[in-house]
């Protein structure tokens, strides 16, 4: 058995690319993505699992990257908001959010977008009630949420999953 580590090399796939960096084992995945790999699209609000801003996909499932240690994601496939667009072409969920004005300041948006991508991958045609339930783990202080629900519904209507 390997002895306990305090710092280690962390290799994982991020947005389809093999990435690797050395980090202290107490580094959260969110801090590793932002500071270790320079992917600052994942935002940090509360840093204790309440606001949802740091939501990323871990092997396809939405998770809070502030509630996961980077060392726990070794070997995993992580998708962040940077991995959605293809060049200048927005991901259909991003485009639908844009078209619906589903954000104001935009700070919480990466988390909402990733939550929506995970939802539509599993349930391509969620009801409005189901959309609201699914978004309930993400906090926005600007929009009042209606336009975000509209954005998800628009993405679903365009078969954006």
């Amino acid at each position: 058995m390997t002895s306990p580590l305090t710092s280690t090399d962390i290799s994982l796939r991020v947005n389809g690319e093999e990435r690797s960096a050395t980090a202290d084992v107490r580094t959260t995945l969110a801090d590793f993505l932002r500071e270790g790999l320079g992917l600052t699209g994942t935002h940090l609000g509360c840093e204790h699992g309440v606001c949802g801003a740091c939501t990323v996909l871990l092997d396809g499932a939405a998770v809070r990257s502030c509630l996961l240690l980077a060392v726990q994601a070794r070997g995993a496939e992580v998708t962040t908001v940077e991995g959605l667009a293809e060049g200048d072409r927005l991901h259909p969920v991003q485009q639908a959010f844009h078209d619906s004005h589903a954000f104001q300041c935009g700070f919480c948006t990466p988390g909402f977008v990733m939550t929506t991508v995970a939802l539509l991958a599993e349930e391509p045609t969620p009801s409005r009630e189901r959309i609201r339930e699914c978004l309930s783990g993400n906090v926005c202080r600007c929009t009042g949420y209606q336009s975000i629900v509209d954005g998800v519904a628009l993405a679903a209507s365009r078969d954006a999953g």
């Binding site: 058995m1 390997t2 002895s3 306990p4 580590l5 305090t6 107490r26 840093e47 060392v71």
Partner: peptide, 21 residues
């Protein structure tokens, strides 16, 4: 980094977990 320092162990069997505990 917000947590206080700790060492991290990633055992692969229940026996290893019980040994570590």
């Amino acid at each position: 980094m917000k947590p206080a320092p700790f060492a991290y162990a990633a055992p692969t069997t229940e026996d290893e977990v019980l040994d570590l505990l």
